[in-house]
Design a protein around this nucleic acid. Structure first.
Length: 247
DNA sequence: AAAACTTTCAACCGCGTCCGG
DNA sequence: TCCGGACGCGGTTGAAAGTTT
């Protein structure tokens, strides 16, 4: 009774993309645009499902992607947006030009969550974590009962803190500072105006086909746009090569 | 030097939503 | 109004890279 799978998986390739596949997909999209993801792999000569192609394009091949680490201010903005929007990563990503929802989600799960916990804040509610350690006398002030730590790795994470109580002291002092800084930031940050500003200037990770076609494909067929696309294709080769090297 | 462990992030999966017939 | 196909989103996984012991 369940849904049909998005595609017939028999004979379809999975896993990391190769440089040839990237080139095929990129060339196809640049030449034809995207009208239906389901047909893209067939027409592009790829043994992938449409979903996989879409994901690869959005998260890796899109021309407007910004690469590199998140800045402090980006992190702060993510925290603010998460406070308002929750785990709506695509909404959050729409305020960061060139960032994908997947990227932001990953960054949240691997870095920001920990940061907030260090600040004594619940990453879900952004409120101070109940100081149960005071009341329940469960002396081990394990900062993170690391419920999650993603892959349920709470098995070993507290090891260092437990072994080095003097470091806990330092961390707690730092945490207090960070905590007050965080609240100052929250109070001073004008999210609404920032959101409005962002909404005008940013593009979302859910890069729409029309947008894609207009901006990347040059709906006007202007030669200028074609040239800049060529330049982009050339420039993107460098990281594709690098990518294949990694793979 | 090597094994054990942790972190990162690309990719997958399944569900919800949208939209056309 | 209902149904089915396609897209988009968020959660999760797992391999590779990095770090510690």
């Amino acid at each position: 009774m369940g849904r049909q799978p998005c595609c017939d998986k028999v004979g379809l390739k999975r896993g990391p993309w190769t440089i040839e596949e990237d080139h095929k997909l990129m060339n196809f999209i640049l030449n034809n645009g995207i009208h239906c993801w389901r047909t893209v792999p067939k027409l592009a000569g790829l043994l992938r499902c449409g979903k996989s192609c879409r994901l690869r394009w959005i998260n890796y091949l899109r021309p407007d992607l910004k690469r590199g680490a998140f800045t402090e201010s980006e992190e702060d903005q993510i925290i603010q947006l998460h406070l308002r929007l929750g785990n709506r990563w695509s909404k959050i990503a729409s305020h960061f030009p060139g960032r994908t929802d997947n990227e932001i989600k990953n960054h949240w799960n691997t870095k920001i969550k920990k940061k907030l916990k260090l600040l004594g804040l619940d990453p879900v509610t952004h409120k101070p974590i109940e100081k149960t350690e005071k009341t329940n006398g469960n002396s081990s002030n394990k900062p993170d009962n690391d419920d999650d730590n993603g892959q349920g790795t709470n098995k070993v994470s507290p090891r260092k803190d437990e072994e080095k109580p003097e470091e806990i002291q330092l961390n707690l002092e730092e945490t207090n500072d960070l905590f007050s800084n965080y609240h100052m930031l929250c109070e001073s940050f004008d999210l609404d105006s920032w959101l409005n500003q962002g909404a005008n200037t940013c593009c979302s990770s859910s890069y729409s086909m029309e947008e894609s076609n207009k901006s990347s494909m040059g709906e006007t067929n202007s030669t200028i746009q074609q040239d800049s696309l060529k330049q982009w294709v050339d420039s993107v080769d460098s990281f594709l090569s690098w990518d294949s090297f990694i793979h």
